[in-house]
Write a protein that binds this DNA or RNA. Sequence first.
DNA 1: ATGAAAGCGCTAACAG
DNA 2: CTGTTAGCGCTTTCAT
Lengths: 337, 337
Amino acid sequence: MRVTIKDVAREAGVSVSTVSYALNKKGEPIKDSHKRVIDAAKRLGYVPDATARSLVNSRTNSIGVVIRKQKHKDEYNPYEVELIAAFSSELAKCKNWMNLYLDNGDNNSLLEQLVIDAKVDGMIWAGEKIPNQIQNILKVRSVPYVIVLAPEANPEVSTVQINGEHGVVEAIRYLVSLGHRKILNIAGFPNMATKRRCTYINTLENMGICSHKEIFCYYNENLAYEEVKKLLIQNDNRPTAIFAENDNMALSAMRAAKDLGFKVPEDISIVGFDDIYATQISDPPLTTIRQDLNEVARLACEYLIKCRDSKISLPLIHEKVPTKLIIRGSTGKVPAF
Amino acid sequence: MRVTIKDVAREAGVSVSTVSYALNKKGEPIKDSHKRVIDAAKRLGYVPDATARSLVNSRTNSIGVVIRKQKHKDEYNPYEVELIAAFSSELAKCKNWMNLYLDNGDNNSLLEQLVIDAKVDGMIWAGEKIPNQIQNILKVRSVPYVIVLAPEANPEVSTVQINGEHGVVEAIRYLVSLGHRKILNIAGFPNMATKRRCTYINTLENMGICSHKEIFCYYNENLAYEEVKKLLIQNDNRPTAIFAENDNMALSAMRAAKDLGFKVPEDISIVGFDDIYATQISDPPLTTIRQDLNEVARLACEYLIKCRDSKISLPLIHEKVPTKLIIRGSTGKVPAF
DNA sequence: ATGAAAGCGCTAACAG
DNA sequence: CTGTTAGCGCTTTCAT
């Protein structure tokens, strides 16, 4: 039989309210009776029932997190752990549990059941579009929620997004600050990454640099290796820096450069994008740009906690988290001619 | 104000118990009153309160999962997501939430608070040793728990483990079945991996094969590349197959072989261990061996759910999950001489 | 089948 | 400071 607050009260010879009072006040147990309560609780091995507490307080100290990833797309996402870890640690900081569900979008009725059954004070939705039905449930229950890392914006709900273009600007600014003027961009797709590409071109032009060059490598490492090699073999107008749209292509570029006898960063600087683990152990470690997922998690959690703690309903938030430059060994001053 | 079962009762002109009855019976709403209840519930946007339900049913439909990873050790673990995903999907199958906490072992009192505050029907502990204090809380609350992937065995609590040696045996058996007799083992450390090494040697000897050879590459890719290259250059007694203790070394071996003009798998077969993502996109894709984390999750969850559903307390379990051979393109029949 | 009522374990008025 | 008591929202006897 489980030990309840009643048992403790009987054991300590006081009423239940005294027990509740004594156990919840963290002040010194000055009162003799309080000491008795604490003793009794320890003796009986009393552990309060979190569910009963939640019912009366109408707060659960947990936040729901559902991460929806499209099936087969982005099968291998090095960020998922990072994102999950960020939420977990952010929530634990204020003693909250994370109720996590990894959703692949193929069973909305299961998802709905789960959301109905969720004992949470707030909800975070990461990734693909959140179904309206789910939003309705959240609304009638007045569970505050925020959408995170969504592919498209939505002004009617709270969001925390990554400012994608910011990273491109950051990389270029950094390279230019090192004196580089001939910067090669290894892009992904010619059609898809329009925004990034525009940012790349605009940034360079805004800085008065026109000798930019782009190649498209479709996020394919081998292709990047070959293309960069081809490009570096030509002796005229060789770039002094390379900025790739992901780390894998950047690492291929580095390998290509090294295989041709170039030294990194003495002869050529290289910047990646993503900050995958391999960048830390490459030789030299790759300078790269990353999404600050910890910041994303922090903002989302902070908002939800605030919503819970304030009685009034808070205004929506629309945060844009800038990317972060991680300077390592693959970048240096432009070589003197 | 939130809509409760009372509101629905009033709206439908019945008592609360009728509402509860009508809403929980999934049978046909033959009775007119039931139909009225369902209508009223929909009209009012009624969503039952999961906490209140939990309190009276004393079941929460959620399972706690805490994954403890030692700080700085194994900083990059490609399995973490996989493990988390396995738990999430396994639990969702039976409509349970996962309450997840990623613990780095540096704040046991926070952990304790969380466990006290956990509204769960069972608990899974993955990784490093579970503190006694935590076990005590679980016990007095009679929350069933199982330890998963622990470094050491523990006969007094339920466990689900990976059978490590099994993978070694599996790899060798497979290579031998393809006709290979000269199998090189790329081991990690000479001292640490005693168990695996013994298994390797014993397995070969048990099969009557004595021409085994081992090199130690300390899980270092570059070293593996150089060592394998050195070894393959010698023309006499060259191995026809290589078995590496992790995928990274296996991939290095493959690169070394290819760089020397060998064809994989025509001239030489290669098997890895771990099934990291890179094995799928290498050329050829790497045959490898992996832990079956889905099975681990399945067994642990199944047990806990069973514990909850059966009133009597179940006997402990001690499962050993065999590894799984993933046959891809890097292995083939031994070349004819 | 339905309603009245008890109670899950806890907190927080309220009165003393 | 302490005890009494009324709920939190729901399920579930137990009569009717």
